[in-house]
């Protein structure tokens, strides 16, 4: 971008600002990321591998994958259906509905877990009934899945709503008037239009689902090998002063974050016009 000298800063000022920005990002973002890998390999490759292939770590990885494999698809279905209802129709209280969909982002993760304890816990609303029927939700996998669904709730919807709003409904109306049914219209017209935006939302949703700590921590019960997700397993190892193993498992999640960022950047670069890139 070339600007005339009257609308840009003197050279020394530009370099000062660039140095300031890069210095801050280095200190605040790059160093913590580097520290994860440095601490993980502090005692060598064997100690690193031992931390990862330990049975409790494997169990934590499986649970994290399972939770994401349930929470993400459900949120995809919800996100598409909310975006369809909101962008293809006019109805009252629409802006209220959008605000409510965004609500989980303003709730502390700890409170997001607590709400399910109040509903499904032993002393909760459904507690006595669940106990009678021998169903356990809190301190078990279903609670972890629910808490994850709560914190990842808005991701897909908030990506698709503005995107489908921009695209309008002429394409779909044309398909319907040519005799297509609703499902055909969705799969052959809408889905191809929104696929990159959908993928973008799913990426962010998945990163949060696999990395969530606070909400899951409240409902998990921290039973080793059973109800520990990867972030919770990291906490236990860390509190036991088993730092190498904690950071070893952390490198996997940091790797997931880096892959997420790389794919996100690729999507933004390649399909910028087919995304709605907004804040979170």
């Amino acid at each position: 971008m070339s600007r005339s000298t009257s609308t840009t800063e003197p050279g020394w000022m530009r370099w000062l600002l660039i140095a300031l920005a890069l210095g801050f990002l280095l200190l605040n973002l790059a160093l913590p990321l580097a520290a994860v890998f440095f601490e993980a390999f502090r005692k060598g490759w064997d100690a690193y591998v031992a931390g990862i292939i330990e049975p409790d770590a494997i169990a934590a990885m499986k649970l994290t994958l399972l939770v994401a494999a349930i929470a993400v698809p459900v949120n995809i279905v919800f996100g598409i259906s909310a975006a369809w209802a909101i962008t293809k129709f006019e109805f009252r209280f629409k802006s209220l509905l959008i605000t409510l969909i965004d609500l989980p982002f303003s709730v502390s993760p700890v409170v997001s877990g607590l709400v399910y304890v109040l509903v499904f816990g032993l002393q909760g609303w459904l507690g006595p009934w669940l106990r009678e029927h021998d169903v356990q939700i809190i301190f078990a996998v279903p609670g972890i899945v629910l808490a994850t669904m709560f914190v990842t709730f808005p991701f897909v919807a908030r990506e698709l709503i503005p995107l489908m709003q921009e695209q309008g409904r002429e394409d779909e109306e044309a398909a319907i008037s040519l005799g297509a049914n609703g499902w055909q219209t969705f799969t052959r017209v809408t889905l191809p239009n929104i696929r990159w935006g959908l993928l973008y939302g799913v990426l962010l949703c998945n990163a949060r689902a696999m990395g969530e700590f606070g909400a899951v921590s409240v409902v998990s019960g921290h039973i080793r090998g059973l109800t520990n997700t990867m972030p919770l397993h990291i906490e236990i190892l860390y509190n036991e002063y088993n730092f190498v193993a904690a950071f070893a498992v952390a490198t996997l999640l940091a790797g997931l974050a880096l892959v997420t960022l790389a794919l996100k950047t690729l999507l933004e670069w390649r399909y910028r016009d087919q995304l709605h890139v907004g804040g979170h």
Binding site: L29, L31, A35, E39, E235, T265
Partner: peptide, 30 residues
């Protein structure tokens, strides 16, 4: 640099927590 700015959105908070502690502990880099 532009991609790195979003790291806090993508990096699980527990990982950020232990990394920052390692950096700022009395024997850490910072």
């Amino acid at each position: 640099v532009n991609a790195l700015v979003d790291l806090p959105f993508a990096l699980p908070t527990a990982v950020a927590g232990i990394a920052l502690t390692a950096l700022y502990a009395p024997n850490g880099w910072i």
